Amino acid sequence: MTHHYGYVAAITAALLFGISSTLNKLALRDVAPLVVAGSIYLTAGVVLMFIRYTRFGRKLLSRLEFKVKPQDSFSMRDVVVLVLVILFGSFLAPLLFMSGLDLTTAVNASLLLNTETLFTVLIALIVFKERASKMSMAGILLILLGAVVVSTENLGSIELSRGIVGNIMIILAGLCWALDNNLSRFLSLKRDLLLVTSLKALIGGSALLSLSALLGVSLNIPAKSLPYILTVGSLSIGFSLVLYLFALREIGAMRTGAIFSTSTLIGAFVAFLVLGESFTPTKAFFGVLMLFGVYLLSAESPTEGSYTR
């Protein structure tokens, strides 16, 4: 299986995750934010664990072939990494993001959440020594620039001096997700990606819902909100996580993280189609820049500016 499948997986993961913003907005009309976060992760875990024991699950894992010998067993290091991934990616990041969203403006939150991509790239470059050519870095910069513009409804309304505590929480959420992205590279080498992703989602979702109950947040989910939560959980979180891990294995955290941020473009376009939110010519232009950035990344030969594991 060539590296191009890694790029296809990253783009598909971004597409699945991109639709979640619109569906989450619909669910948030009647359900508390922390309950939405916990419910979608728990749904993802249940769906993936179920699929793992079906013929489809076995066929899916067989299609996600390895370029290197797969690892069947879990070492103590793998267990520690899984615990950290759950802590940072499935618990702290959603908790910080939802809490920060309540303390700052939606515009600030949309802008600052792009720090996840920036942190992911920096950690991959500095800590894990992934290598990038000038063309790759140009592609990443184009994607990040496009994400900032596309994810921010009105750049003129940014007021970072407002809701400073909330802003800091959003940035910390981005850092936690970036740590999750980079640590997950170790788990991506496992044969059973369905087990890894289901455990991550099950434990993280259960922890978030338990925290909601302890805080006295209503766990009630109206019937009309269930389709949104089930769709986001199974597709936008569940299968998106599996494809994200596969992309990590194939093309590294730096490229996967950058490409995954195109979910902001997909989210903005779906919101335009479903919710009637604005999709201006400016957003369309910077969206095209993002896609060109993805092209620059994917057009590079695997031997150029390559990555390490």
Rank of each mutant, 00 (worst) to 15 (best):
A213T: 10
L145M: 12
K25Q: 12
I251P: 09
R162V: 07
I158V: 15
M137K: 06
N220T: 14
T43Y: 02
L175F: 15
S218L: 08
V127R: 01
L179G: 00
L142G: 01
L211Y: 13
L230T: 02
V274S: 04
M135E: 10
Y307H: 14
Y7R: 02
V68P: 00
A124S: 06
R77C: 01
W177N: 08
Y244K: 12
V274E: 03
F239G: 02
L141S: 13
T54Q: 04
F279M: 06
A9G: 10
G267P: 04
G216P: 09
K190V: 12
S218Q: 08
F97N: 12
G174S: 09
G57W: 05
R63E: 15
P33H: 05
F272C: 05
T12S: 14
A109T: 14
G57N: 04
L144F: 15
T104M: 05
G305H: 06
L291Q: 05
N167D: 15
L208M: 14
A132F: 10
S184T: 15
Y244A: 05
M98A: 14
S298H: 09
F260A: 11
L145Q: 01
S236F: 04
F279Y: 10
V81M: 05
A44H: 07
L111H: 02
S206G: 14
L265P: 01
A32K: 10
A44M: 07
I123C: 00
F50Y: 11
I19N: 01
E153I: 04
L209N: 08
I86E: 12
L118V: 15
L215V: 04
G216M: 08
S136P: 00
M1H: 13
A258D: 11
R55W: 12
A213M: 13
S212F: 08
A14D: 04
L208W: 09
L92T: 12
S306V: 05
L145Y: 02
A109F: 09
K67T: 11
R52S: 13
L101M: 14
P70K: 09
I140H: 01
V270M: 06
F286S: 10
V294W: 03
V148P: 00
E250I: 07
G38Q: 07
L211C: 03
D102I: 09
Y53K: 14
S306D: 08
F246L: 11
N108R: 06
S306N: 10
L26D: 01
L289T: 06
F88K: 10
E277D: 15
L60W: 08
L243K: 09
L175D: 05
V31N: 02
P302L: 05
T43F: 02
F279T: 03
L211G: 04
L141F: 14
L95R: 13
L208V: 11
S263C: 05
V81R: 07
R63S: 13
D180A: 04
A132E: 03
N154C: 03
Y295N: 05
V149I: 15
N182Q: 09
G216C: 08
L291V: 15
K200N: 13
F269T: 03
S136V: 02
S218V: 06
L96C: 13
E153L: 07
I259G: 06
G205S: 10
L113P: 00
I171N: 07
L183E: 00
S198V: 12
A37V: 08
I259W: 04
F279K: 02
A27W: 04
L111K: 02
I158D: 03
N154Q: 12
T264R: 08
V270Q: 02
